[in-house]
């Protein structure tokens, strides 16, 4: 029963913290350096190329510069052939390692804390004293369960946007306004975590008004199928780690007069909870009307989001100022001198 499960908080926390370490060990065996696991997850998602080996390698070689690693990976991506067009992944089908909902005490499939340090008091030294637990006492069956928002959608309580028949592919064409939602979500999926977080935080704090309730936040493995080039059949080629987040926000009157709850969605490669939550908040700000009276928000501006979250672009440009600029600066000075002369 749900009631008992919630009261088991203390035990669940201990397991979540202890599992965290085991989880990192697992990936160490898979080739991802344990000490840099989470920064590598960020790079994976920003590269828009899922290769744990190459990412880890390049990250080590260049001394752990996150931005430069994403840059290397993105340029590596340009040299890879896209053999199979675009595929959609259903996040409801993820093999879950962590799934939480803050909207309800109990949700179908349960609250699965998985590996997490969210509930650890961050006092230096505490991590060493975490109790170990017997992982074998847990069932090893796959956990697959729907987002709680599905039940809301079935009852027609959530605003849904029209389904796109032919989703955009930002890796092939740079999107132009008015932007398709698939293009917006893709831009965010490879956007830089810090940038997304900053824009989302403006909305959370009052420049905008998205105060989300996390309906579903999950981390899990997705099976990737491709069409075999010779036999023409769908074949499973790999599994990738994904994070996705669905939030519920304020309700809103629709064009047909019905009042519905609004939602927001974010999903990206790797274990990136902050990024997925930020994406969902921005998605919600972009596609739903503002609740309060202020019009000074940033996160609901398509032009801002589409053009200011990509680290390859922003980091590249910020650093180009290190290039010599003596020609332009000299012409600036000439104008300045003229103005001074005229002013006197």
């Amino acid at each position: 029963m749900g009631y008992v499960a919630v009261k088991g908080g203390e035990k669940a926390i201990k397991h979540a913290i202890s599992f965290y370490d085991k989880f990192l060990d697992f990936f160490e065996n898979e080739g991802i350096d344990k000490k840099n696991f989470f920064v590598i997850q960020e790079i994976l998602s920003e590269s828009s190329l899922y290769s744990t080996n190459v990412t880890t390698n390049i990250f080590h070689k260049i001394g752990g510069d996150k931005f430069a690693s994403s840059f290397f990976m993105r340029s590596f991506r340009s040299s890879c052939n896209n053999i199979n067009g675009k595929r959609a992944i259903d996040v409801n089908k993820l093999r879950i390692i962590r799934k939480i909902s803050s909207a309800f005490k109990n949700v179908p499939g349960g609250q699965i804390l998985g590996p997490s340090l969210d509930y650890l008091v961050k006092v230096v030294g505490t991590l060493e004293s975490v109790d170990n637990f017997n992982i074998e006492s847990f069932p090893d069956t796959d956990i697959i369960s729907d987002s709680i928002l599905e039940s809301f959608r079935e009852k027609n309580l959530v605003k849904t946007l029209p389904k796109e028949e032919d989703p955009f592919d930002i890796t092939k064409i740079f999107p132009e306004p008015p932007y398709k939602r698939s293009a917006v979500l893709q831009m965010m999926a490879r956007g830089e975590t810090g940038s997304l977080l900053a824009f989302a935080y403006t909305s959370m704090r009052g420049y905008g008004d998205v105060h989300p309730t996390i309906g579903d936040l999950r981390v899990g493995f997705a099976e990737i199928y491709l069409e075999h080039p010779f036999i023409g059949e769908e074949v499973k080629v790999c599994e990738i780690l994904l994070t996705s987040c669905e939030i519920l926000s304020k309700f809103e009157k629709q064009e047909d007069g019905r009042v519905k709850l609004t939602s927001g969605f974010g999903a990206c490669f790797g274990f990136n909870e902050t990024k997925a939550i930020s994406m969902a908040i921005i998605d919600s700000a972009l596609y739903n009307s503002s609740y309060t009276n202020n019009s000074q928000d940033i996160a609901s501006n398509f032009d801002i989001i589409m053009n200011h979250i990509d680290s390859i672009e922003s980091v590249g440009f910020a650093n180009h100022y290190k290039l010599p600029h003596y020609v332009t600066f000299l012409s600036d000075l000439k104008v300045f001198e003229n103005v001074l002369k005229g002013g006197n």
């Binding site: 919630v6 009261k7 908080g9 203390e10 669940a12 926390i13 509930y119 650890l120 008091v121």
Partner: peptide, 19 residues
């Protein structure tokens, strides 16, 4: 936390205060 003595964040903070 949200009405419950046993929910995760209440447990964390209680343990912290106790320690």
């Amino acid at each position: 936390d949200q009405g419950c003595d046993g929910s995760v964040n209440a447990v964390t903070l209680r343990n912290f205060i106790k320690s």
